[in-house]
């Protein structure tokens, strides 16, 4: 029987190692897998590379990992989000590395990793500082920048409902990066608000099919 449910947060994040590249879903704190992210603290791991749209809000989730000195590098589009004090303090003190990626390029790099694509040419950032050092190519008269896939060792994502197969549905704008990251890591762990019986999710409404999911934990 396929059963991806795990009993608690410790089981959900078990085995994640020092130096891991961790994809964290959401947009700001909406759709951010805060409980899973904070569960990494109890593992005692450090030197993490966090991939997310933002770099933590207030003192929760990614911000808490940064405050506890667990994060070596952040790959994100917009660290200056609502209440970015944890990242800003670490960045100004030189304790954290930042790789800034345009948001659509970040999303497409994650998609490429999940889709087995070796890279892609995007018009975004052509002619700007963020394209420096990257291969560019003129195709049909337009300049494009070569971007490479961005794969995680683990993806931590948040969804609304799941079943024991790991099929996921989301709620409103809490969807954002979560379905993009689910296929883009070696292991994908999901925190959900509720777990329902297999067969009770509308197949037409499942956004992330369970094939992309390894572990599901319920966090109320």
């Amino acid at each position: 029987m396929i059963d991806k449910r795990v009993p608690d947060l410790a089981a959900a994040v078990a085995g994640i190692k020092n130096g891991a590249t961790v994809l964290c879903g959401g947009f700001g704190a909406v759709g951010e897998p805060i409980a899973l992210t904070e569960a990494l603290l109890d593992l005692g791991i450090r030197d993490l590379t966090i991939v997310a749209n933002n770099a933590g809000t207030g003192e929760i989730g990614i911000a808490r990992l940064i405050n506890e000195g667990r994060v070596r590098k952040v790959i994100c589009s917009y660290p200056r989000t609502t209440d970015p004090r944890a990242f800003e303090a670490a960045y100004k003190a030189g304790r954290i590395e930042l790789e800034l990626v345009p948001q659509g390029t970040l999303s497409e790099r994650l998609r490429a990793a999940g889709a087995g694509i070796g890279g892609f040419y995007t018009p975004t950032a052509a002619g700007t500082r963020l394209a420096e050092g990257k291969e560019t190519r003129v195709l049909d008269g337009k300049t494009y920048v070569l971007e490479k896939p961005l794969k995680g060792d683990v993806a931590l994502i948040a969804a609304y409902k799941s079943d024991r197969w790991g099929n996921l549905v989301y709620r409103k704008s809490a969807r954002s990066f979560n379905p993009v990251m689910a296929p883009a890591a070696d292991m994908t762990v999901v925190q959900v608000k509720m777990i329902v019986d297999l067969g009770s999710l509308d197949p037409e409404a499942i956004v992330t099919p369970g094939i992309f999911v390894d572990r599901v934990v319920m966090v109320r």
Binding site: Y78, R80, E88, P102, Q103, T105, L130
Partner: peptide, 12 residues
Amino acid sequence: TPGVGGAMDLAA
């Protein structure tokens, strides 16, 4: 602290 968000994608 720099931040780009979706600006470059929208502009392009």
